Amino acid sequence: MTEEIIIAGFGGQGVLSMGKILAYSGIMEDQEVSWMPSYGPEMRGGTANVTVILSDERISSPYLKLFDTAIILNQQSMDKFENSVKPGGLLIYDPNGISHHPTRNDIQIFQIEGTKIAAEMENKKIFNMVILGGFLKKKPIVKIENVIAGLKKSLSERYHHLIPLNEKAIHVGMENIHPYQTLVI
Rank of each mutant, 00 (worst) to 15 (best):
P37D: 00
I53R: 03
K139H: 10
F135H: 09
L91G: 02
G26E: 07
T115A: 11
R44E: 05
K124S: 15
V15W: 02
H100C: 13
E4H: 07
Y63S: 10
H178N: 14
V147D: 00
P179A: 06
P41G: 06
A70K: 01
Q13D: 06
Q181T: 01
V33N: 07
N83T: 10
A118K: 09
P179M: 10
S154L: 01
P87G: 06
G133Q: 03
D94A: 12
M78V: 07
M129A: 15
L22T: 01
P62N: 02
I27Y: 06
I117M: 11
V147A: 02
Q111P: 02
T103M: 09
L151T: 11
R104Y: 10
A23E: 10
G19K: 01
G12S: 12
S61L: 03
K116T: 12
E4V: 15
I131W: 00
E3N: 15
N166E: 00
P87I: 04
I170M: 08
Y39T: 09
Y93D: 04
L132S: 11
P37E: 00
G19W: 08
D56G: 07
S77L: 04
I163V: 15
L136H: 04
P140Q: 06
E4C: 11
W35S: 09
S60M: 08
K139E: 03
Q31G: 07
I109C: 09
S25I: 05
H100F: 15
P37R: 03
S99W: 14
G12K: 05
I27G: 00
T2I: 14
K124N: 13
S61G: 08
V52G: 01
K137G: 11
P179D: 04
I109G: 06
T51E: 05
V33S: 04
G88Q: 05
I131F: 05
S84P: 09
L54N: 04
H160P: 12
L132R: 01
N123F: 08
V15E: 00
V147H: 01
E57K: 12
I53Y: 00
I117A: 06
M43A: 13
M121S: 13
V85K: 01
M28A: 01
E82R: 09
N83A: 01
F10L: 14
S38H: 12
M18H: 08
L91K: 02
I177L: 05
Y63V: 15
D79G: 04
V52S: 09
A119I: 13
N123I: 12
E145C: 05
S60T: 15
Y159C: 01
M129L: 14
M43D: 11
L73D: 12
Q111C: 13
K125L: 14
G26T: 02
I92L: 14
E145F: 07
K80T: 14
D30L: 13
A119R: 14
E167R: 12
M18S: 08
K124P: 15
M1Y: 10
I98A: 06
E32W: 13
F135S: 01
R158L: 08
A149N: 14
L132W: 02
E122M: 14
S55C: 01
G150R: 00
I5Q: 05
E145T: 12
S60W: 08
G88D: 02
S60N: 11
K152S: 13
